[in-house]
């Protein structure tokens, strides 16, 4: 339960951090909150040659809300964002999702960008990022590029990040006051990984519109486009019926049929909570 040997660097700037990543692509890992990486090191599931600790990089904890929305630097912790959202700022979907993440001690240290970079299929924030069309700024020694959340998540722990890239910032668009949002999940214990979860938004003003992104049921955040269309046109029962066509993850104690049933229940509950038609 002790990590394999590694070298350690604590750069003072983002540029220094990505220079270390680029020096020997694939040999280094970014250490941000470490709430997933440290267990992986202790279990020796990850054995990087170098840990690049970014906890002291300048301006890493930037949390800015303006006309462009909410921009978060790589050191914004879950607890920081939760506190921001609890005061009625931020975004209502994030306010609903953050309390579901692990436990207070983990939220005090874990970072939003780190959760996105890890891309655990059962994690809440990747689904929120897809639901809200968040954009990520990826930085490497080669420069910076911007990518949408939908294109960023590729599979189980797989993202568009190259070996010499890290997330410099994530930006969530401003909340539309006509939309209501919720995030629901079922887990064995509070803070445990979700068996199935749902980030859901509904707009009843003007032409009805919905946004539904499931997590814990597929290799990556799963946009439920058919369910969105059914929910706005015919209501939640019709939306749940569309789940029968999905190819969901099975395995372990939770076969795909069970995850589908849980997801359907969550969809019914979310629709009711958001004022969508049954």
């Amino acid at each position: 339960m002790k990590p394999a040997p590694f070298a350690y660097a604590r750069p003072g700037t983002l540029a220094e951090a990505v220079a270390l990543l680029g020096a020997e692509p694939g040999a280094a890992r970014i250490l941000a909150g470490g709430q997933s990486l440290m267990p992986m090191l202790n279990f020796r599931l990850a054995q990087p040659a170098l840990l690049v600790d970014i906890n002291r990089i300048a301006d890493g904890a930037v949390l800015r809300q303006d006309a462009d929305g909410l921009t978060l630097g790589p050191l914004v912790r879950h607890a920081d964002l939760l506190r921001h959202c609890a005061a009625g700022r931020g975004h209502p979907l994030l306010a609903a999702a953050l309390p579901l993440i692990a436990h207070s001690g983990i939220r005090n240290r874990g970072t939003v960008c780190g959760s996105l970079a890890l891309a655990d299929p059962a994690a809440e924030l990747p689904a929120c990022a897809v639901a809200l069309d968040a954009e990520l700024d990826l930085v490497s020694p080669r420069g910076t590029r911007r990518i949408g959340a939908e294109a960023f998540f590729r599979g189980i722990y797989e993202t568009a990040l190259a070996e010499d890239e890290m997330i410099a910032a994530v930006r969530f668009p401003p909340a539309d006051p006509n939309w209501r949002w919720t995030c629901l999940e079922v887990a064995r214990r509070q803070g445990d990984f979700a068996i199935a979860g749902l980030a859901a938004g509904f707009c009843a003003t003007g032409a009805p519109a919905a946004r539904l992104v499931a997590f814990g049921v597929a290799e990556r955040p799963l946009r439920l486009a058919a369910a969105e269309a059914a929910l706005t046109a015919r209501g939640s029962d019709a939306a749940v019926a569309t789940l029968a066509d999905l190819d969901l993850l099975g395995g372990g104690d939770y076969p795909a049929a069970y995850r589908r049933q849980v997801l359907g229940t969550l969809l019914t509950r979310a629709a009711a909570a958001l004022g969508a038609p049954a």
Binding site: Y8, L31, G34, Q35, M38, P39, N42, L51, D53, S104, G105, I106, N108, R109
Partner: peptide, 8 residues
């Protein structure tokens, strides 16, 4: 409050 085992 943080986990002492998840910090170096």
């Amino acid at each position: 409050c943080v986990r002492g085992c998840l910090l170096l």
